[in-house]
Write a protein that binds this DNA or RNA. Structure first.
Length: 570
RNA sequence: UGGAGUGUAGCCAAGCGGUAAGGCAGCGGGUUUUGAUCCCGUCAUGCGAAGGUUCGAAUCCUUCCACUCCAGCCA
C-alpha cells in the first residue's frame, strides 16, 4: 500500500499531485517545518486562466500545508510594465479568493541588495562587465553543435570590473553598450550557463523606483535571490524554466543568500479554442478587436469575471485539471462544465424572453386578480428552498419566445415540447394555456397569439385529457423590464488558433458577440446586482454587465448556455 | 543533430512490481412544471513501439519512435 493519498482508507480522496507529494515528504523529513510559496507575475499584462492555475497551485499548496504564499511583482523590466497591471493583478488575485502573506512584495525593492551581490560576484571572480554588443554576444555564444567563445572582456581585473559596474550604474554608458555577465562556462551544453547576462542598461523610468536605476537585473539574476530573501521554500514555475534551474541554483550557491529555495516546474495550462499569451491578448486589446482586457470573451480573469464566471468555478476548474509535468491542452468544455456546475448550484432562477412574441389570454377573467394582476410565487431555486421565493405578475398579455411556438402541427411530442397551434403548453410556474388563434401582419409575421388558460392549473395538473407538450418560460407584457442581452460564443473558431505559423487573428470568430435588444426580463430582476448570476430558465446563466449596464439600461451577459443534449440529436 | 522534459481512452489524470482509480466529453436508460439539474448503466485484454528481466511489468533494464522547450541585454 502506498501513501500518496491524504487518507488511503477512503477511496474517494483525491490522489496527491507530484508537488503535494514533494512537500509532504519535505515536511515529514524535517527538511522544512513550514513552507512558503509565491506567485510572481510580471506586471506587463492582465492575468488569464493560465495564471489562475498558477495562483490556485501556489496559494492552494500554502493553504493546504499551513504555510504562506507571497504575491510578488517580478518587476525587473520597466520597458513593458505598468502600474495599471499591478492594480489589475492585485484585484484579480483577491477576487479569486486568495490572501497573500504580509505585504505585497516587489523585486524592485531588492535592487540595492542585488547590486551588492553583483559586486560580490565580481569580487569572487565570478562576474565581469562585458562590452560585446548584443549581436556579437550572440555569435560568441555558439550553438547546439559548437561551444561558445570566451568574451575578450572575460578576464578583466576585479577592480576594473567594479569600476565598470559603477559606471554602468552611474549612467555613463548608453543602453546596450555593456552588460554584467556571470563567468560560468561558455562550453556548457545548457545555453543558460554560457556566461548569462546579469544586468543590462535601460534608461527608463520604473513604475516603482522612478529614475533611481538605469541598470536592471535580468530574470535569472533576480528570481532565485528574490525567493531566497523571502524565505520561499518551494519556488514553482512552468516547464520552460527547467533549463534555468542550474543557473537558479548557481546563484543561490554562490551568493550570501539567507535561504536555499528549490525550484520545481509544472506544465502550464493550455486551453483549446483559446489564446493564452499576454502578448497576443494585448494585441487584441491594442487593436480594438475586443472591448478591453476585461472583454467577456477574453480568457483573462477580469474578462471571465465580467462575463459571469464565478471565482469558485475557476478554482474548481483548476482543481479538476490536475498538476503534472506533461504538456497538455485542456478542452474548454471542461472549463464550461466547471462554470455550469457552480452556477447551477448557486444561481437564482429567473425568466427572460429574448425574442418576444405577444400572447393574449382571452379568458383572463378566470384568474384571481387584483388590479388586473395575479401574483404568482416561484422559488428562486428549484432545490434550494433557503434561497427564498420571487413573485411573478401574471397578466392578460404576456410574452413568450418566438422559438417556443410553431404552427407546424405535424411535429411529434418528442420533437417539439413547446407550444403548437391548437395545443397545450405549461407556462413555467403558472397556468397551462392553449393556443387558439394566430394574429399576423400583412407580411405574414405573427404579431400576437390568442390563447386561453386552463383554470386551476397553477401548481396543479390539468384535468384528464389535457396534455401540455412541455414547459416554456414567459414574462408579463405589462410588468417587466426591458433589457439588452449579449450572447457570447468562443472568440476563436480554430481549436489551436496560434498553431504552427498561423496568425491567430485569422482564427477570430466573427460571431463571437451577438447583441440582442428588446428582451423582456421578469420584474424581480429589477434588483439585480453586478456580480450576481442568474439562471434565465431554459436559456443559460446571465449577469449584469459591469461596464455597459447602468440605471437606465439593463445589459445582461450570458456567461454560458444550459447544456443542450437535445440539439445534437435532432 | 547539443541540452532539458513528456508519452496511460476523444480531452485531462491516478498508478510508484501483484493483474488499468476518477473527472470531462460521448453513448443508453430513469426522474423532472427548465429539452437543465439529479440518478443509474456503459465507455483501455490496454499503458508511444519492440525486445528483455520476473511466477507476475504501465511500473525495472535495453534499444527505438513521437512531441514540447532552450542559442533575448524578455519573463
Amino acid at each position: 500500500m502506498n501513501d500518496n493519498t491524504t487518507d488511503t482508507a477512503s477511496p474517494d480522496v483525491k490522489p496527491l499531485n507530484f508537488l503535494q507529494q514533494i512537500i509532504k515528504k519535505d515536511l515529514a523529513d524535517g527538511a522544512h517545518t513550514q513552507i512558503t510559496t509565491r506567485f510572481p507575475p510580471e506586471p506587463n499584462g492582465y492575468l488569464h486562466i493560465g495564471h489562475a492555475k498558477a495562483i490556485c497551485l501556489n496559494f492552494g499548496l500554502a493553504q493546504e500545508f499551513g504555510g504562506g504564499c507571497n504575491l510578488r511583482f517580478d518587476d525587473t523590466n520597466p520597458e513593458k510594465e505598468d502600474q495599471e497591471y499591478i492594480d489589475s493583478i492585485t484585484r484579480d488575485v483577491q477576487w479569486l479568493g486568495f490572501e497573500w502573506a504580509g505585504e505585497i512584495k516587489y523585486a524592485s525593492s531588492y535592487f540595492e541588495t542585488f547590486y551588492q551581490w553583483a559586486q560580490h560576484l565580481i569580487e569572487t571572480g565570478k562576474a565581469y562587465v562585458c562590452h560585446l554588443s548584443a549581436d556579437q554576444a550572440r555569435k560568441y555564444r555558439g550553438d547546439t553543435k559548437v561551444a561558445g567563445t570566451n568574451s575578450p572582456y572575460r578576464d578583466r581585473s576585479v577592480d576594473e570590473n567594479l569600476a565598470e559596474l559603477a559606471k554602468m550604474r552611474a549612467g555613463d554608458y548608453d543602453e546596450g553598450a555593456c552588460t554584467l555577465r556571470a563567468k560560468i562556462d561558455m562550453a556548457a551544453p545548457n545555453f543558460n550557463l554560457r556566461d548569462p547576462m546579469l544586468y543590462r542598461i535601460r534608461k527608463q523610468t520604473h513604475h516603482q523606483t522612478g529614475d533611481k536605476w538605469c541598470i536592471y537585473p535580468t530574470y535569472d539574476f533576480a528570481h532565485g535571490q528574490e525567493d531566497a530573501i523571502e524565505g520561499v521554500t518551494h519556488s514553482i514555475c512552468t516547464l520552460e524554466f527547467a533549463d534555468h534551474r542550474p543557473l537558479y541554483e548557481w546563484f543561490t550557491a554562490n551568493l550570501p543568500v539567507p535561504s536555499q529555495p528549490r525550484q520545481y516546474e509544472f506544465a502550464r495550462l493550455e486551453l483549446n479554442y483559446t489564446v493564452t499569451s499576454k502578448r497576443k491578448l494585448k494585441q487584441l486589446v491594442d487593436e480594438n478587436l475586443v472591448d478591453g482586457w476585461d472583454d467577456p470573451r477574453m480568457p483573462t480573469i477580469a474578462g471571465m469575471r465580467r462575463r459571469g464566471y464565478s471565482a469558485d468555478s475557476i478554482r474548481n476548474f483548476c482543481d479538476l485539471i490536475g498538476v503534472t509535468k506533461s504538456g497538455s491542452t485542456i478542452d474548454v468544455g471542461t472549463l464550461e462544465f466547471a462554470v455550469r456546475d457552480d452556477l447551477n448550484e448557486n444561481a437564482p432562477r429567473a425568466m427572460c424572453v429574448l425574442d418576444p412574441v405577444k400572447v393574449v389570454i382571452d379568458n383572463f377573467a378566470e384568474c384571481n386578480t387584483v388590479d388586473g394582476i395575479e401574483l404568482l410565487s416561484q422559488p428562486a431555486h428549484p432545490n434550494r428552498e433557503e434561497l427564498g421565493k420571487r413573485e411573478l405578475p401574471f397578466t392578460e398579455t404576456l410574452y413568450i419566445d418566438r422559438a417556443d411556438f410553431t404552427e407546424d402541427t405535424t411535429l411529434s411530442r418528442k420533437k417539439f415540447k413547446r407550444l403548437v397551434a391548437g395545443e397545450y403548453v405549461r407556462l413555467r410556474g403558472a397556468y397551462v394555456i392553449k393556443s387558439n388563434d394566430i394574429v399576423k401582419d400583412n407580411q405574414g409575421n405573427i404579431t400576437e397569439l390568442r390563447c386561453s388558460l386552463v383554470p386551476n392549473t397553477v401548481g396543479e395538473n390539468p384535468p384528464e385529457g389535457i396534455r401540455p407538450r412541455g414547459v416554456i418560460h414567459w414574462v408579463s407584457a405589462e410588468k417587466n423590464i426591458d433589457c439588452e442581452v449579449r450572447l457570447y460564443d468562443r472568440l476563436f473558431n480554430a481549436a489551436a488558433p496560434d498553431a504552427g505559423d498561423k496568425n491567430f487573428i485569422d482564427a477570430l470568430n466573427p460571431e463571437s458577440l451577438q447583441i440582442i435588444q428588446g428582451c423582456k426580463a421578469e420584474l424581480s430582476l429589477q434588483s439585480a446586482q453586478i456580480e450576481q448570476s442568474y439562471q434565465f430558465e431554459r436559456e443559460g446563466y446571465f449577469c449584469l454587465d459591469s461596464k455597459h449596464s447602468c440605471d437606465e439600461k439593463f445589459v445582461f451577459n450570458r456567461a454560458i448556455g444550459l447544456k443542450d443534449n437535445w440539439a445534437n440529436k435532432v
